[in-house]
C-alpha cells in the first residue's frame, strides 16, 4: 500500500482551472451530431409499398401508413407520432424497400403537442 497523502487530486485539479470548458454551450453554440445518429424519420412515398411491416414492428405505435389513393392506384402517406417514437429505428430495419431512413435531425421539440404529429407524403 502506498503512502497516503490528503488532497492528492489538487495537482490535477489546479491546472484544470485554466483549461477551456469540456461542455458545449448548446443551444447557443452548435452541437456536433454524428451522421449516423438516430433522429427524425424521413419517408419516401414513392418507394413505399404499404406492406405495413414498420407498423407491425414499431414498439411504440408511433408510425401509421395510410393509403390515400384508390384501391387500384395506391398512394401512401405516413403519419409519425414524434411524441410516441423512441427513435430505435426498428421500422428502418423492417422496411423491405428502404422507404424509411433516419436523419440526424434531433431538434424536434415543440411547445404545442399537435406539432408532434407530422404527416409525410
Amino acid at each position: 500500500m502506498k503512502k497516503k497523502i490528503p488532497g492528492a487530486i489538487i495537482k490535477t485539479a489546479f491546472p484544470t482551472i485554466f483549461q477551456k470548458p469540456a461542455t458545449v454551450g448548446y443551444p447557443f453554440e452548435p452541437l456536433k451530431i454524428d451522421d449516423d445518429y438516430r433522429g427524425e424519420l424521413t419517408y419516401d412515398a414513392e418507394a413505399c409499398i404499404g406492406c405495413s411491416m414498420c407498423m407491425r414492428d414499431c414498439p411504440a405505435n408511433a408510425i401509421e401508413i395510410i393509403n390515400i389513393g384508390t384501391k387500384e392506384d395506391k398512394k401512401f402517406k405516413a403519419i409519425f407520432h414524434l411524441d410516441h417514437c423512441i427513435y430505435c429505428g426498428q421500422c428502418v430495419d423492417s422496411c423491405p424497400k428502404d422507404a424509411l431512413v433516419m436523419s440526424n435531425n434531433i431538434e424536434l421539440a415543440s411547445l404545442d403537442r399537435n406539432n408532434l404529429k407530422v404527416e409525410r407524403e
Binding site: I9, A13, A22, D36, Y37, R38, G89, M102
Partner: peptide
Amino acid sequence: TLFMYTWRDRELVLDILAMLCGNRVNYG
C-alpha cells in the same frame, strides 16, 4: 472534483457509443 472528472471522461465513451450505434444510451 472526482465527480466532474469521471463524468467528463465518461463522455468519451458515450461519444464513441453515439458514433457506433446512433444513440448515447439505449444503443439499439
